[in-house]
Design a protein around this nucleic acid. Structure first.
Length: 492
RNA sequence: GGCGUCGUGGCCGAGUGGCUAGGCUGGGCUCUGCAAAAGCUCCUACAGCGGUUCGAAUCCGCUCGAUGCCUCCA
């Protein structure tokens, strides 16, 4: 039987601002859409956190036995720099600055995006559509909205009529805004006189002569607006109403609000059942962002080449650091925090690596099924990974005590214990065991030999020699640990 | 200015009416030739001020502070 039948998952829905029981539209199947990156520069750690949060969601849903279609787009048409801009988007601008084709920019940073997410061990989505690959679909949606009178055309551009929409619907339903408030509080921007109201947003923008990325349309040559691609691609691959829509908290307004409006007009149904928003990663007390220069790149962490960290950290340690905070909490990135997480992570993995050497007994001193249920309970409660990790630390301690023969476990329980740990650590949390990878069997053999020699020296009470062996190995990063049943070692 | 979120022990971070996570750091102990590792243990907190309640870190109000969105953003 599928696990989801016995595990009622609760998801915090940004739309209702409450945790709700998760019930997919079609039993056993989940459609999930997550807003992907605009590929005009390298993804920074803040971007990675969001995608890793939804990777956890994806992995856990799959673990529960759901068949998941996970769609995450690549925004390769660029967004406008701002309203006042003469139709220049970020990708086109970068292409002009670097004197290359816009699609070279797209290619370069799409590759970087994929490599980075793979390095941190995110699973690829089921479908990864691009904005430029769905121009036709976007034009069709615009036509439909125009026909329904909720959009208007001016000088080759088409805008969504937010005020008219708000007469029958609530523009601001997701972000908790009222259109009346924003009318009085919108900052004045220059050069936007073309729109009827400042709140209106573009569905199609006319391309001027300089604009490189351009497509023909019923309204002339141009390119799609900022928010349309997600509506086009999510409904195309997941249907008019689908289960989960995710994205960074900073996309809640206006991006997701606009998506709701467009989709509601087009299909006249509620587009999404569960809205999920991942919170921001902050650095130096501020949100990480490309535009402000306040960011750190994942590769800078893995290589140690940066000014904030004292050393390099593995992708798994970095992932573990982020998983120790809940996805809806702001997480503060610091070198000290990462170091503390790494220490804990190494300890935990060292304990789990000893699982194979555990001896079994007639009874178990820990109730394995209770412990296992606590693990499930933690993730069932809106993907509470910090609680899951706390439970895993409890398991690690138990393993250490088992090795010391201070606790007991039956063979049957040990099998279930191992399977559960493996599932949660590797499959669900997506962590990797990078402790053993660089200790090849040959090195292990050499170290075992040195341990034997050292034991002889110890038997002869030749402490000088035994300590020399230990200290020399330590300086090479190999640590000896004398236990009751002999000496073991670990490679740092 | 508008709409939000948050303020937890030395640090990071869960919890969100009574059962008071977890990790890192520091002190003590056990084990050990010494050390390391491991285990045990100690330092026991909820910004401030009021209120509701038998009982509040958790609910309500105010104050202070931080931060997100309101312009592209994960």
């Amino acid at each position: 039987m599928e696990l989801y039948k016995t595990n009622q998952l609760k998801i915090y829905n940004s739309l209702s601002k409450t945790k709700e029981d998760f019930k997919p539209i079609v039993e056993g199947n989940v459609g999930m859409y997550v807003c992907g990156p605009t590929v005009y520069s390298n993804v920074h750690l803040g971007n990675v956190r969001t995608f890793m949060s939804f990777d956890l969601v994806f992995r856990y849903l799959k673990h529960l036995g759901y068949k998941v279609r996970y769609v995450r787009n690549i925004t390769d048409a660029g967004h406008l720099e701002n309203d006042a801009d003469e139709g220049e988007d970020r990708i086109a601008k970068k292409a002009r600055l670097e004197q290359i084709e816009p699609m070279e920019i797209v290619q370069r940073y799409t590759v970087d995006f994929h490599q980075t997410l793979q390095t941190i061990n995110n699973l690829p989505p089921s479908i990864e559509p691009t904005a430029t690959g769905h121009i036709v679909e976007q034009i069709e949606i615009i036509k439909d909205i125009l026909e329904k009178g909720l959009a208007y055309e001016i000088n080759g551009s088409v805008y969504f009529d937010v005020l008219k929409y708000n007469e029958t619907e609530h523009y601001g339903i997701l972000s908790g805004r009222n259109i009346e408030d924003s009318i009085h509080n919108t900052r004045e921007l220059d050069g936007q006189s073309e729109k009827k109201n400042p709140q209106d947003f573009a569905l199609w923008k006319k391309a001027d002569e300089r604009h490189i990325m351009r497509w023909p349309s019923p309204w002339g040559v141009g390119f799609p607006g900022w928010h349309l691609e997600c509506t086009a691609m999510s409904t195309k691959y997941l249907g008019e109403t689908f289960d989960i829509h995710g994205g960074g908290l900073d996309l809640k307004f206006p991006h997701h609000e606009c998506e709701i409006a467009q989709s509601k007009v087009k299909n006249n149904v509620k587009p999404v059942n569960y809205w999920m928003h991942a919170n921001m990663l902050i650095l130096n007390g501020q949100k990480m962002a490309k535009s402000t220069g306040n960011y750190i790149l994942p590769n800078e962490i893995f290589s140690g080449e940066n000014t904030i960290l004292s050393k390099a950290f593995t992708p798994s340690a970095t992932r573990f650091f982020m998983l120790q905070a809940h996805y809806r909490s702001v997480l503060d990135f610091t070198g000290a925090g990462l170091e503390a997480s790494e220490r804990g992570f190494i300890k935990m993995m060292e304990a789990f690596n000893k699982l194979d050497s555990v001896a079994t007994s007639q009874t178990s001193s820990l109730n394995i099924s209770d412990w296992k249920q606590k693990c499930y309970d933690s993730l069932n409660d809106d993907f509470n990974s910090p609680i899951l990790i706390a439970n895993l630390f409890e398991a690690a301690k138990y393993v250490n005590l088992l090795v010391d023969k201070k606790e007991t476990i039956t063979q049957l329980d040990l099998n279930e214990f191992k399977t559960t740990i493996h599932s949660f650590v590797y499959d669900v949390l997506g962590l990797q065991n990078d402790l053993q990878s660089d200790s090849s069997e040959k090195i292990a053999g050499v170290v075992e030999m040195l341990i034997k020699m050292r034991n002889k020296a110890r038997d002869n009470k030749n402490w000088a020699l035994s300590d020399e062996i230990r200290d020399e190995l330590a300086s090479l990063g190999i640590q000896l640990k004398d236990g009751k049943d002999g000496t073991t070692f670990s490679v740092n």
